[in-house]
Design a protein around this nucleic acid. Structure first.
Lengths: 242, 242
DNA sequence: GATTCAATAATTTTCGAAAAAATCAGATTT
DNA sequence: AAATCTGATTTTTTCGAAAATTATTGAATC
């Protein structure tokens, strides 16, 4: 919460950008929240201009929205946005996984196994509430990144990373109101096996299922929790995933 | 060249961002060029911080690159980048066109016809060197946007627009060293016909061909013009488009 | 009560001076 | 000659005060 962060060769603006991005995807800055400069200045201890720079970049990443000259706000969440985001992620991640399975070598395989192992161990160590941990979010992210890392497309990798981050907020929401499922580790393991076995059809089917599951979980509960008068967005119209 | 631009309800930073983006995609700020603050400040008549805000956003769009605390430069061009960009555009535009052909209504069709007509007329009016005109770039862009506008995905639309802009620089290069081809208007017409006829297979094949053609044209000549000692990038390794 | 208008307050946006960092030039050493 | 250091110079980065814009309040009018 306090600011002990410096950086070796990095710019202060980059640091604030990074911290703010984290705060948004962890919902410490809530969806739809108005971002006032004085408050942010106190929170991150930087100047107006530096803040503005970070905000502006986050706007380019669709994590905040800027309106005219009346400031910025955290990008709202909505079922439409979630559906749109999910479909787009499936499109891109499918292609990346397909290519990675074609091009991936021994190192690729080793990396997947390593990051899966790290994630699995951490999950077991953290127990019941692993998904609240920032640490776990990081290794989970690293695991999924490793699967598609050999697609040989810097552009796709960059796009995917941004979409993955945008989805993080919904992932967090999903984990809040789920009842049973602990089966995620099993899902992950099945994806690893299919990928290493180069079973394209199976792997793609599994990853798509995996991505859509979180989405469906959120929508199911969102409909129940936010009928339509929610503070920001969530304005229904499920528009069944095709 | 001078600055008569103001804006009604827009921010100054947004205006500079817009102008700079144009200058980059039109190669008035050349690929790989170092962007020094004093020079830019004079060119756009704004302050350091405002500049920085624009630069930072352009970095998020991959039109400039920021390195540590040694400033910014225009994103370099390279054959690898072009190939990567092209493949990504094909993936995304295919999906968008497919969906638009499914969802598109009479308005969609009308819009396509209208923007095609505008482009066609302007091309004929401008004659031989139409492709140098900023105006034409705008109507050409609008035409392609209209084709995929009914995909019902704000996310895809945003991604596509950014990729399209990144590609604009290569398009400009392509038009510089081409010999014959005036057939582009025919290509465009065929795409329109296939789209309105809802012939998915044909339309997707045509749009992919259309996108890849520019790319191949650049690569063919780039190899000839920039053996390997080019000022910035273009470091070969064609890696045949899959 | 609802609407308009003006004055005031709150907030955002812009600016260029000042601080921090990188680069350059020349002298010194290995 | 190549490598290293030192101080001067250039360039980038940060800062908060000042300007511009939007929001609010309250009185005056319809």
């Amino acid at each position: 919460m306090a600011d002990k962060q410096k950086q070796p060769g990095e710019t202060r603006a980059a640091d604030v950008l990074h911290r703010m991005r984290l705060d948004i995807i962890n919902c410490e800055l809530q969806p739809g929240e108005k971002l006032r400069f004085e408050a942010l200045r106190a929170r991150y201890t930087v100047s107006f201009s530096t803040l503005r720079e970070a905000l502006s970049r986050l706007a380019a990443e669709s994590l905040v929205v800027a309106e005219g000259q009346r400031g910025f706000m955290v990008a709202p969440v909505s079922i439409e946005d979630l559906n749109d985001l999910t479909d787009t992620r499936v499109l891109i991640e499918n292609e990346m996984l397909r290519r990675s399975m074609r091009y991936g070598d021994d190192d690729w395989e080793a990396n997947i196994l390593a990051s899966f192992h790290r994630m699995d161990k951490m999950q077991k160590r953290l127990g019941r509430e692993y998904y609240l941990s920032e640490e776990w979010a990081a290794v989970h992210s690293a695991f999924h990144a490793s699967l598609v890392s050999e697609c040989r497309s810097p552009t796709l990798i960059e796009l995917r990373d941004k979409l993955f981050e945008r989805a993080q907020r919904y992932r967090r929401m999903s984990s809040q109101f789920r009842k049973k499922w602990r089966k995620k580790d099993v899902e992950h393991k099945m994806i690893v096996d299919a990928a290493l076995a180069r079973d394209e059809d199976l792997a793609l089917r599994l990853i798509e299922r995996h991505i859509r599951e979180t989405s469906e979980n959120v929508i199911a509960h969102a409909q129940h929790l936010f009928p339509q008068e929610t503070p920001h967005a969530f304005s229904a119209n499920p528009q069944a995933a095709e």
